[in-house]
Structures are given as structure tokens and as C-alpha cells.
Amino acid sequence: MTATDAPEFSGTPLLPSRTGSTVELRDLVRDFGGGAGLAGFDLAAAPGELIALLGPSGCGKTTALRSLAGLERVDSGSILIDGRDVTDEPTNRRDLGMVFQSYSLFPHLTSGQNVEFGLRMRKVAPAERRRRAAAALELVGLDHHAGRYAHQLSGGQQQRVALARALVTEPRVLLLDEPLSALDAKVRVQLRDEIRRIQTELGITTFFVTHDQEEALAVADRVAVMRAGRIEQIGTPEELYHRPATAFVAEFVGLTNRVDGTVTGGRLQVLGQEVPLASPVADGPVTAYLRPEDLLLAPDGIPGVVLTTSFLGALRRTRVRLEDGGELSVQHGARERPEPGERVALALSGSPVTAAERSVAG
């Protein structure tokens, strides 16, 4: 990348703008001859929105991100940023910031020099580069680590430097490709929350690729659940969890118990009880998707035997085998401590339940 190829740098302070950019991916097709492609992929992001692309391996989520970045050529379709078609433009003309799973820091440069790198490529004056790099490092909480090299930083600190490097050029769009997957669980949660804080503070339109559903639900304004190169459903985390549009989404997002049921007159009959439906389903045999929190340990109800129970802090999750051989997961308060082998009874909480016609649900 040369200075003449790079987008013009404003030279203004790194401060919250809350303007964001619009991004549209229209009917993108990328055919690899089998798997991990795009098959008519459509997605539009509003200014300042954080959209998570979530799905199993091979669903096309990284291909979608790489196509937006210009790192992957699409066979057809168009990519627009702020209304401008950039489909055929190279990566360095799209004005994007990118953070990947691998930290990709230059080992021979300090943290500050790594962050300055993009500014140096844009021929920004040395004093301005240092000032802006310091501001970016302060934004990610590493202003006292500017003189350290990559080997002197923890994994979480290295990824913060990579994030500062992506933000220092004031990109219109930020792309995050599984940026937390190489970190341990505690650091992953801390940095996840930090990314969300920074993204909200700067108001930058962001795409976050992950296979971790908890991560997606925690940080995103909207989550796009992908399957076979297309978006199966897009919505807020609450919509996806409580009102999944398809059987695939119901099973992929969150823990779910699959149970046979019947819909009659708009009501669901399942496990001998009647409950409301989360969304309309035609009368007839259905597969009901019961969340663990839709079930209760009760004095009376469906009899079963405890198989396992797991302490999760404020909650406990217990696996119960029913008399017909089926198994259900129940989420309940941690103070209830059933023991393996103990006989218990289950009841439905009465919350609306998602169901799909059994012929469709499989």
C-alpha cells in the first residue's frame, strides 16, 4: 500500500463521532466449488451498528467479511459503503480497520510503532503519528505500554494493540474476524466488553465474526445467523433467542430441548401441558424447542430421574431422564441442589415456546 493509494487521513483527534457508515452487501455470490461460499448473501448495516456474523464452521461468515474487506473476490453482487460501490476496489481504498484472530504485530516494533504503522504508510508527520498512536493506546487502556514489544505483552494486551492499530486511522468500518478466540475465557470476556465500549464510544459501524453464540449475543446490536452461505435469520439477540424463525436457529442459538408436541387452535400441547406459542404455527404435529429455563423443578409434574447437575454460579443446570427415556435440561436456582439418581418432577414455566412443523423440523 502506498500513500497515494490510501484513503486521505483527516488528522483530527481520535474522538467519538457517532456518525458511522452505512454498509450494504447485496446478493453476494462466491462459489468455491463446494462449501464456505456465499449464495445470495444480503445484509445492510446502519451507521454505528455492530452486527455479529454467527454460524457453524463452513457457513460462509468469514468469506462474507473477507469479501467486504476486499480480500476475497465475489463472483456477483455488490458491496456499498455510504452508498458508494466498492465491489471492485482494492482493500486499501475501502477505508476499513481490521483485527484478526492472530495478533499479527510486527515483532521488531514497539506497541506504539505498531499502532503508528498505518499512519506512517499514509505519510502522516512523525509528531502527529505519535500523538494519535498514544491516543489510540489510551483508548484501549495501554497508554503505559507504548514502548513494549509484542513478546513483552500478554495475549490480551497484544490484541488490544491490534485493535488500536485498526482504529488509529479512523476507518469508516471496523472488521473483527474471531478476534478473541485465541484468548483464555476470562480475558476473552474482559476484552469483549472493552471492544463493545470502544465501538459504542466511537460510533463506528462494526462487523464481528464469531462461532461463539454467547459472544455474539453479548456484544451485538443485531446477530446474523448464517447457514450454507446465506443468512438464516437476523435480529436482535433477544429476538433470536426468544423468537427464532427456523428450527436451525432455535437449535443453534442457546441450549434447547427438542420435544414432540401438537398445536391445536394456536396453543401448544407438549409434555402433557398447554403453553402459548412464541410465533404462529399451523395446527398439527410439531417439534417444540424448550429452553432449559422454560422448565421448572416442581412438586408435581412430569416424573424423572436426575442424571447430572452443574453449578453455574447464580444458576444450576440439571439433566433429567424421563420415564420414556427422553432427557431434558432444566435451568434453576443454584440453591436447589438435586443429586444424581434423585427422583424429581418437571413442569413448564408457562412462557411462550418456539415450535416448528414436524415435517419441516425433521
Rank of each mutant, 00 (worst) to 15 (best):
G203S: 05
V330M: 06
L297S: 04
R317Q: 15
F248L: 08
G265H: 01
Y241K: 11
L277Y: 13
A282R: 13
V253D: 00
A298N: 05
G272D: 12
R291G: 10
R267N: 01
L295A: 08
E215L: 12
F208A: 04
G313N: 10
T318Y: 04
V275D: 09
L328R: 08
G254E: 03
R267W: 11
V263Y: 01
A314W: 15
H242D: 14
E238Y: 12
T308F: 14
L307V: 15
L315V: 10
A245H: 06
V263I: 12
V225S: 05
P280S: 01
N257D: 02
P276C: 12
A218D: 10
E251T: 13
G284Q: 11
R227H: 08
R227V: 07
V281E: 04
A278G: 15
M226W: 09
I234N: 05
T236G: 00
T210F: 04
E327F: 11
H211T: 13
D221P: 09
R319H: 12
E327H: 03
P299N: 03
M226G: 13
G326A: 12
V270Y: 09
T309W: 03
V275Q: 07
E274L: 14
V286H: 07
T246R: 07
H242Q: 15
I204S: 05
S310L: 15
V320Y: 01
I231F: 08
V270G: 08
E323K: 11
Y289A: 13
G313T: 12
P280N: 04
